[in-house]
Write a protein that binds this DNA or RNA. Sequence first.
DNA 1: TAAAAAAGAGAGAACGTTCTCTCTCATTTA
DNA 2: TAAATGAGAGAGAACGTTCTCTCTTTTTTA
Lengths: 237, 237
Amino acid sequence: MTDQAMPRQTPAASSDDTEGSCCFVTKLFGKRARNREAQEERILAAATTCFIRSGFRGASMNDICSEAGMSPGALYRYFSSKEAIIEHICAQHRRESAEILDRMSSSNDIIEAVVKVGIEHVRHMSMDMSNNGPADASARLFIEVRAEATRNDAVAAICELHEGMMRERLIAAFTAAKEAGLIDPVVELELAVATLAAMGEGIILRNFPAQGVPLEALEPVFRALATAVLRPTNKQL
Amino acid sequence: MTDQAMPRQTPAASSDDTEGSCCFVTKLFGKRARNREAQEERILAAATTCFIRSGFRGASMNDICSEAGMSPGALYRYFSSKEAIIEHICAQHRRESAEILDRMSSSNDIIEAVVKVGIEHVRHMSMDMSNNGPADASARLFIEVRAEATRNDAVAAICELHEGMMRERLIAAFTAAKEAGLIDPVVELELAVATLAAMGEGIILRNFPAQGVPLEALEPVFRALATAVLRPTNKQL
DNA sequence: TAAAAAAGAGAGAACGTTCTCTCTCATTTA
DNA sequence: TAAATGAGAGAGAACGTTCTCTCTTTTTTA
């Protein structure tokens, strides 16, 4: 099965050149620069679609060109290699995952905060409609990124970078919660964080929402597991 | 980095033709048949090594031939295509995972049985020395298989087959345990099985042993999570 | 049992295709 | 008009697979 061809289009032809393009600012923020960004995004979106459909190795540059409605000559003006596109997409995906943690509430119920972040993470992975592909596109890409990381050092480094950030962020929140008496003092925070992360990723990997388990059903599961990990001796508050 | 070349060898040259080759039994069980099996295994082992190193798409048939010390002409006598080798290896890997469940004890402590199976699963995935590759070779292959299953229908069917068997096996054990009063009556067994499976696979995905978390440290984690899932209201027995 | 025929197994060159990436030249934009 | 942009042919390597040929082993024939 081959990729759908798209009619080639010159993006600047989309006729909204209302903004004035004056002086040297044009160099950095003018139409040219904006167009370059738009083209890069177009390529990345097309590549993401192709990679989800066929994998990093399975999708060819021709596939990506067709999907983007662009010639190889044009595409290579924006990205120097397929590897560069892969790394860009991996970084983007891992960054988006990490950013979910930034929205974690610092309320005084650490268990509920963890549950909310877990659910949010699964929702983001399994019900992403921003691409026009399958709902679980992001989860598929996640598996692909992880597989790539086992043999591609650059991708492994990207994953490690963002995972380290997530780990730190969680450890900080947990340390505060522990001091506030919201987490059992016997809990080893590093292991707890690793366990919760493994759980979340396992649920993404098995793709619960796509298998008929609704997000709401996942909530008590997350709560039970978070409680088991953070309050093993079951003291309330 | 390219694959190591191996000196070609004619397996029949290994001069142990002590067994008499008489009558029609030779046809099915004779040297020829045994040799064919040995060659198939040689190819599968080589392919596994290459696939772990470079992925299903990243490893070429030439890589596999070099690793097996065999020419393409010889290899294609045993497997009709690369796809056939991939499917064979996927089936083998998933079958081995499923078989771990067959050794699950039917003792009267369901939690401990689950813990043991979980640990055994992680050990099998993360500390497999049967290949001479990395210790977590099996875990890497697992991720690759899962990634392939998202876009290869044949591989997806293989995964689904074995997963269904595992699910049934666990549901049966849990149903018995529930009737014996070892599992909280409010527990939905399907969701419990799915949750435990996700946890196990998440831990394999994150590769705890390779990251410095020893198997023994994993035991209380598994126990806490199994308890949370199977006895949410925390009645003892 | 000895010679002849058939089948099996493997090596390695070669096939057609597809891959990533480059080059040239035309067109658009500032 | 100079610089930026894009189309598309295509180079060169690598891909999965097949082909032909040789050598060995087994089976059949005399």
